[in-house]
Write a protein that binds this DNA or RNA. Sequence first.
RNA 1: GCCGAUGUAGCUCAAUGGUAGAGCAAUCGCCUUGUAAGUGAUAGGUUAUGGGUUCGAUUCCCAUCAUCGGCUCCA
Length: 600
Amino acid sequence: MIRRRIEMAENYEESKLYRLRHSAAHVMAQAVLEKFPEGKVAIGPPVEDGFYYDFDLPRPLTPEDLEEIEARMREIVKANQPFIREEVSAEKAREIFDDQPYKLELIDGLEAGGVDEHGNPVEEKPVISIYKSDTFVDLCRGPHLERTGEINLKAVKLMNVAGAYWRGDEHNPMLQRIYGTAWLSPKDLKDYLWRLEEAKKRDHRRLGKELDLFSVSDEVGAGLVLWHPMGSRVRHIAERFWEDEHITHGYEFVYTPHIGKADLWKTSGHLDFYAENMYAPIEIDNQQYYLKPMNCPFHIEIYKSDIRSYRDLPMRYAEKGTVYRYERSGVMHGLMRVRGFTQDDAHHFCTPKQMPEEIDFVLDFSLHILRSFGFDDIKAYLSTRPEKAVGEPERWQDAEAALQASLKRAELPYEVDEGGGAFYGPKIDLKIKDALGREWQLSTIQFDFNNPERFDMTYIEEDGHAYRPYMIHRALMGSIERFFGILIEHYGGAFPVWLSPVQVVIIPIADRHVDFARGVKESLKQAGLRVELDDRSDRMNAKIRDAEKLKVPYMLVVGDREMENNQVDIRRRSGERLGAMLVDDFKVLVLKDVAEKVEG
RNA sequence: GCCGAUGUAGCUCAAUGGUAGAGCAAUCGCCUUGUAAGUGAUAGGUUAUGGGUUCGAUUCCCAUCAUCGGCUCCA
């Protein structure tokens, strides 16, 4: 599962829920240590929906172990032991934890000051505190509940075991992490488990199969997506909309190849900084060619194919460019994380004077596209200049100021990530929240001060001299594959009518209604709708069931009554019955749904 | 890449050291149906791949590949 990124309540760390989860982690650690007295403990913090604790144990944990541990936790909670805080010196702490190497490492860090339990730098030298409950003592900042009995174990559940590196560094040993979820009330737990179930039902990998949208074949290769006809319909409609909007908004389309010579990638810097994501070169006539991980160098070459005047700018090159990036074997995930994907890419080139307006434009355009797909809950993240950066500082300042001004003008909620930009330019990322409240990054609007230099891009100003243009890279959907995955999960497979691969299914009740149904189908097809006729000699109920499972927005039942009046009886996938109406009236109704991109 | 789990029919899942079974789907019939599953029959599998142990492996062991849950990284 992709980690959910929901902002936690601002005061989460002071909340009772936080203390509860932290305390549950301690109780669990005690239960684990009783089972494995030689076990070593690492860290066990509260997280978004619960808590975890990392252990170094003599053998892998099994699901049965978790049950046992949970049973033991029940006893510990029942005993209602108090959590006792004590502040100790580093020496004392070392004595207490002398057989706990991970804790000793943490103590060293605390004593030296400057790092917290995750190894991140902190400003003040922290006080070393320990918490005791029953037989368990932990090096811990707290806070905790008063007593173990405050934990309602009916609201706590151990979820799964996973591997995790000590301090998140892959050079460190792999520990076993037990994830648990914990809530204030059993109802909250139930709600959480329901959300998990719901997420599972909406999982794009499952729906991709059920709705016959896409697949990934072993024979083709991991992380390489096959778009089936039904998925391709959705993609095609989305792309056509995307194209139309680009045309009306002053973009030019370009098409570029999938491979380019080594020198190109050397100039762009990819072979120096991005090589580990690139595939091995292909040799052609003693020249090395690389599969493209990005489209930018090609667009730059198009720009450079002629002398550019300030009168030509801004220029906007757009391309749905398919790129290939090496992903490590364990990280692929349905459509969300793949090795070959298509970016809805574009590069803007403009003069410094045009730049602020260009940013306004691209931000508005991005929001327009995202909202069209039903994503209304959008948040922006502005990332500014990092320590190590290329480009003149004044340019950075101008760019950051323009980005911030655009965000303010667009009245978009945003956060600033100081120093979080790439070395080659500041950026705005747009993240949306889906129907389950999960946050996903889609769009990115990114300055590039590096490539115009590297490729020596210029334009001629009024004064007849050559100047460096601004270059802005942007992708709206990001990866079309991933965007599709998010769309599937957002809508739970029930796409809005304008995107539905099949918009209408006609269901004749008996064979004698099939001819009439064919006429209806033709008429709707003429109107540009995606219609299917279910002429199997099955019962109507079975056909409705099948259409429901495919989440077709409209089912038209035709029987004797309808045939007589040249009508169709309309059922929505929600189960709502709209009654019988003339085919032409239905047409108007659906076309309105399509035009207005109505959801539901 | 790392840790753990998994891999049996198109899908969801059973079973066994003596060459596998159900439901759904599919195909062919019968039924001609009024808002979420009518009914009968048939067909369908070198049990992921490659080795090994064994008289015999789908089952036990090893390797590889893939998937799932995480870690790391990221669109």
